[in-house]
Amino acid sequence: RELEAFAERFKQRRIKLGVTQADVGAALANLKIPGVGSLSQSTICRFESLTLSHNNMIALKPVLQAWLEEAE
């Protein structure tokens, strides 16, 4: 499924970029996305391991996609 594929791609790109899960969480606050502050390292970890609820995964995907586009 698309969500699982994105989570895997996100993790691979993050590692290639040399960015930690905690760095991603902190950097999200800098994107100034309305309603989104920083996220914890454990939230990023749970996203990558697909252990968040489906609704949370869907909500976080565009936020993490925005970070990925900014980071690349």
Rank of each mutant, 00 (worst) to 15 (best):
32 K>N: 13
71 A>S: 10
22 A>P: 03
3 L>N: 02
49 S>M: 09
31 L>H: 01
36 V>M: 14
10 F>G: 00
38 S>A: 04
9 R>F: 05
6 F>Q: 01
70 E>R: 12
40 S>Q: 05
35 G>Q: 11
56 N>D: 04
50 L>F: 04
63 V>Q: 04
21 Q>Y: 09
36 V>S: 11
51 T>H: 07
5 A>W: 04
46 R>P: 00
51 T>R: 14
42 S>L: 12
32 K>E: 14
43 T>I: 10
36 V>L: 13
22 A>D: 08
66 A>D: 08
48 E>L: 00
11 K>Y: 03
11 K>I: 09
15 I>Y: 05
71 A>I: 08
20 T>M: 05
63 V>C: 11
51 T>E: 09
67 W>Q: 00
23 D>G: 06
21 Q>D: 06
29 A>F: 10
63 V>K: 04
72 E>G: 06
31 L>Q: 07
14 R>S: 00
37 G>L: 08
28 L>F: 06
22 A>H: 10
30 N>L: 06
58 I>V: 15
43 T>K: 08
1 R>V: 09
8 E>N: 03
13 R>T: 15
71 A>M: 10
16 K>H: 11
54 H>R: 15
67 W>M: 03
36 V>Q: 06
47 F>K: 01
11 K>Q: 09
49 S>W: 00
66 A>R: 09
62 P>L: 03
34 P>L: 04
21 Q>N: 15
3 L>I: 15
62 P>N: 04
50 L>Q: 15
70 E>K: 12
50 L>M: 13
26 A>W: 08
8 E>H: 07
21 Q>K: 05
29 A>S: 10
12 Q>F: 08
16 K>L: 12
27 A>Y: 11
19 V>F: 14
51 T>C: 09
26 A>K: 14
21 Q>G: 04
36 V>A: 10
18 G>K: 05
30 N>R: 08
36 V>T: 05
24 V>E: 00
70 E>L: 05
65 Q>T: 02
66 A>K: 15
16 K>S: 13
68 L>Y: 05
2 E>N: 07
1 R>E: 10
3 L>T: 10
58 I>Y: 09
40 S>E: 10
23 D>T: 05
13 R>F: 06
56 N>K: 10
62 P>V: 04
25 G>F: 09
10 F>L: 02
52 L>P: 00
